[in-house]
């Protein structure tokens, strides 16, 4: 299942996670962001409980968007053991992201 990350739960769900985490920074007005929807859905299905896949709405969660220097969306960041290990700008395909989550 695709999770909903927020300013409030980011530390607990992303930074303290013992599994790899994918955060998809998005906003409702961003057309290309909508195209990421089916991709994150499939990743969540594919990885099951081996990784956390979630979205963060930058309009409602400005603190995290600003902390991670988001200036262009969709932006996708991958976290392992509380560290950001990889970042992407723009729509990415499933395989590219799956590779980084392994």
């Amino acid at each position: 299942m695709v999770m909903e990350f927020t300013d409030q739960n980011f530390e607990e769900e992303v930074l303290k996670s013992d599994k790899p985490v994918l955060v998809d920074f998005w906003a409702p007005w961003c057309g290309p962001c909508q195209m990421m929807g089916p991709i994150t859905d499939e990743l969540a299905k594919e990885f099951g409980d081996k990784a956390k896949i979630g979205k963060l709405n930058v309009e409602d969660n400005k603190e995290m968007a600003s902390q991670y220097g988001i200036m262009s969306i969709p932006a996708i960041k991958i976290f392992k053991n509380g560290e950001m290990v990889k970042e992407f700008i723009g729509v990415q395909n499933k395989e590219t992201l799956a590779e980084e989550l392994k």
């Binding site: 961003c30 290309p32 962001c33 988001i70 200036m71 969709p74």
Partner: peptide, 17 residues
């Protein structure tokens, strides 16, 4: 600077500015 201030989609990224 792509994604660090340069954007090709104004509708997506205007809010950050």
């Amino acid at each position: 600077f792509i994604g660090k201030g340069i954007s090709y989609c104004a509708t997506c990224d205007a809010m950050f500015f």
